[in-house]
Nucleic acid binder design. Structure first.
Lengths: 213, 213
DNA sequence: CTCAGTATACTGCAATCCGCACTACTGCAA
DNA sequence: TTGCAGTAGTGCGGATTGCAGTATACTGAG
C-alpha cells in the first residue's frame, strides 16, 4: 500500500513519535541524535513530513498560518508502521569513512598529506566527543533532555563513544607508525605493521569458536 | 573546470590508478576494499568511468568490441586530480548505523525486537571479520593481493577491525544489560547503565587536556 | 529613524545515486 | 533443446544531496 518508506523516513517517523515537531525542529534534533546513527542532509528532513502525510503515517497538527512553521505528529498507522519496522531485520552498519579512503590511496600522495589526514581524524573525533559529553552529562543528574528514555540514550551514546574511541586509538597508533615513513610508497611490512596485522588476525581467530575439537 | 567530482568519483579514480579495470572489475574490487571505507551501489560504479572520461581524468584503453567489457585507465590529468584531492581537507566519517537507529527507537517496540537487533549486530560483525581475516592473512606470508601496498592495506584493515571490535564489544555488553529488561520502557538509569555513562564521561574528560593547572 | 548585517527558517533546482527489474550471453546438464 | 545458473551489464523512476536563493526578524551604528 504505502510506497515503502526509506530508512530516513522511519528515522523521521521515530522523531515524530517521540514528540510532534516542525521540519526545522527535526533538523535541530538531527544534530543532537540522528546524526550519530543515521546522518542525512537537512534538505531531506524538510521533505520527509509531507511524504509521511501522503502515506497516512503522520498528520499536520498545526499549519502555522501562511508563514510556515507547520507542526507534524504521527498517526496510529504511523506508530504501527514503526513497530512493524522495528520487528523486521536490520541492515549491516555502513561506514562512510572518507578519511580512511584517503589513507587507502595515500601512496599516491605525499607523506605530509597522509599525516594531515590522520591528524584531522583526531581533531574531528575530539570535537564530536566533547559535544557528546556535553549532551550526556546532564543524564547523570537526572536532567537529560529525554531523561525518561535514559536507558536507551545511554546505550546508543555508548556505542557512538566506543567507535569514536576506536577511531582515536587507531589514529594515535597510525601517527606513531607513519611518523617514520619517508615516502608513502615501498614501506613494506615493517615490524610495527607486522605486529598490528598479527594482533588483528589473532583477534579474528579468537572469535570464531572457543576451543575446537 | 571539471564539474567537481564526488567522493565516489575519486574512489573509482583511485582504483583505476592502482590498475586499469573494467566496470565489472570495479564492482568486484568494491566488495574487497571500497566497501570497508566508502560503500556505494554497484549501479553507480558502472556509470563512474564514463563520467571520468568526460572530465578528461580517465580513458578507454580497450573497448572490448560490441559485447561490452570496456577497460579504463587514468590519464595524467586524473592522477593530478587525485593528488590534489589527497592534499585537501577531509570530511568527518559518517556512520550509517541502521541497527543503532533501531535501538534508538527501541522503546517503541518489544524487548524481543531489541534483543534481536543486538544479536544481529554480532552476526553481521562476525561475518565481516571472517571475510576480512581471509583477505588479510596472505599478507603475513607476503602473498597479499596488493603486497607492494601492504603498509597501507594493513593500516586501513586495522581501523576497520577496530571498529568491528568496538561494535562487537558494545553488542556483547548490550546483550548483558538488556537481558534483564522486562519492558523497553521505564527502565531508568540502572546501576550498570550508570556505570557505562560514568566511564563514558570520564574517558571524554580524560582526553580534553592532560593535567590542568 | 533607517539601513546594513546577521541569524533563522525555509524552497527550488540540477546533479547524483539508488534499488529494482530487465536483457544478453555463456556453459552445461538432463 | 530446454531449462537453469552465473556473469556482465542497461534503463528507469524516484530519493537524496549540495548549493544557491528567498523571506522575515532582530540588532546595533550612524
Amino acid at each position: 500500500m504505502s510506497p515503502r518508506l526509506s530508512t530516513t523516513g522511519y528515522a523521521v517517523l521515530g522523531m515524530l513519535a517521540l514528540r510532534p515537531a516542525t521540519p526545522y525542529e527535526l533538523t535541530q534534533q538531527m544534530q543532537r541524535s540522528l546524526d550519530y546513527c543515521w546522518p542525512t542532509s537537512e534538505r531531506s528532513l524538510y521533505d520527509q513530513p509531507e511524504r509521511l502525510v501522503a502515506a497516512g503515517l503522520a498528520t499536520l497538527v498545526d499549519d502555522g498560518g501562511a508563514d510556515g512553521r507547520r507542526r507534524y505528529a504521527v498517526t496510529p498507522a504511523g506508530l504501527a508502521a514503526l513497530r512493524a519496522w522495528l520487528a523486521d531485520a536490520s541492515a549491516m552498519p555502513r561506514f562512510q569513512n572518507e578519511p580512511l579512503l584517503r589513507v587507502l590511496y595515500g601512496d599516491l600522495g605525499t607523506v605530509e598529506d597522509l599525516h594531515r589526514v590522520i591528524d584531522d581524524v583526531r581533531v574531528h573525533v575530539a570535537d564530536r566527543r566533547e559535544r557528546g559529553a556535553a549532551q550526556m552529562a546532564p543524564y547523570l543528574e537526572g536532567a537529560g533532555l529525554f531523561q525518561e528514555r535514559a536507558h536507551i540514550v545511554v546505550l546508543v551514546a555508548d556505542l557512538v563513544n566506543r567507535i569514536l574511541e576506536a577511531l582515536d586509538d587507531w589514529a594515535e597508533q597510525a601517527q606513531q607508525i607513519t611518523a617514520a615513513w619517508e615516502s608513502t610508497q615501498g614501506v613494506g611490512l615493517t615490524d610495527d605493521l607486522r605486529q598490528v596485522l598479527e594482533r588483528m588476525l589473532e583477534a579474528a581467530r579468537g572469535r570464531e569458536r572457543p576451543p575446537g575439537p
